[in-house]
Every structure is written in C-alpha cells, then in structure tokens.
C-alpha cells in the first residue's frame, strides 16, 4: 500500500506492506538511522519519535497508521542556527555514554519542553520514564534537559545571539 508521511517537514511516500512498522519506514526506507530500534516490544523507548508533536514508540506504530501525520525524528532537531538546546544540553552535561537511548531521550525532552518550558526534576523524570538508559546515566540526562530548559532557543524573529553556548 502507498503511504505518505510528513517526516521532519517533508512528505515522503513509499509502497509498503500493511505490517511495515514506522521505525522500519524511517530507518530502511528513508535512511534516517538516528531513530534507534531496540527491544521491539514497546518497552525500551529508544525508537521514540514525535508524532503530531507527542512522543510515540515507533516500533509499535504501523507506517500505515502514521500516514497523513507529522513525524519528527532526531534528524529534525537541529535548526538553521545550530543544535537544538536539548542536543546542546546533552553535550554540556554529558547526557550520553553509549548513545543508544539518546535520540529517544532527546525527542521526549523536546516534547516536554514544548509543553512545559520550565519542568521540575520530577516532571523530567516522569517524562523519560518510558525510556531505558542501560548505561544508567539518568542523572546526567536529567541535568541535560534542565540545561536545555535554562537555555531556550532564541525566538526565530530575534537576532541570533548564540545564546548559552558558553554556559
């Protein structure tokens, strides 16, 4: 069947089987391998992408179900002015070790900050509670999200000031 999914702002079409999973569509058909694929059972959360702005586990969404929706992956985080504050936060606060859970963690963090620009530590921990870091580096992941909350990107219309990079 023919599906068209808007991924990172661009429509992508492919002829897929009904059983084709969104994570395979992103990785195999579009070559967007930033979205990782782990447990395949909707437990580990490394495959989290944003669908219509909210985190979903792409191993448990059919490509057919995502057709007509807007999907955002880690490749869509970086803007024209550089890294998303969430990405920069992971750099600043050493938010990753092996990096396997990182794309899903960052997408969840982005969705959280879009809804709640100043989350408490508990709210951050709750937001990432559907995702596993097998390096157990949760403390620095939380710090990375806190850093991003403290260094929001400048509004698009404002002049770029390279905000917070030296923090």
């Amino acid at each position: 069947m023919q599906v068209t999914i808007n991924v990172n702002g661009e429509d992508h079409s492919a002829d897929v089987e009904a059983r084709h999973l969104l994570v395979r569509f992103l990785r195999d058909d579009l070559g967007l391998t930033g979205t990782h694929w782990g447990c395949d059972t909707s437990n580990c959360g490394t495959c989290v992408v944003l669908m219509d702005g909210e985190p979903v586990k792409s191993c448990t969404v059919l490509a057919a179900m995502a057709a007509g929706h807007k999907v955002r992956t880690v490749e869509g985080l970086e803007g024209p002015d550089g890294l998303d504050p969430v990405q920069q936060g992971f750099v600043e606060k050493h938010g990753l070790q092996c990096g396997f859970c990182t794309p899903g963690m960052m997408m969840t963090a982005r969705a959280l900050l879009d809804r709640n620009p100043d989350p408490s530590e508990d709210e951050i921990r709750e937001a990432i509670s559907g995702q596993l870091c097998r390096c157990t580096g949760y403390l620095n992941i939380v710090r990375a999200v806190q850093w991003a909350a403290q260094h929001p990107a400048a509004p698009a219309e404002a002049p770029a000031q390279n905000a917070g990079r030296a923090a």
Binding site: G45, V56, K57, V61, S129, G130, Q131
Partner: peptide, 9 residues
Amino acid sequence: IADPPVRNR
C-alpha cells in the same frame, strides 16, 4: 499504567 509514550497512544 505503562509510561508516557504508551499513554499517548
């Protein structure tokens, strides 16, 4: 019940 991404769906 489960976790936030699962509860979204």
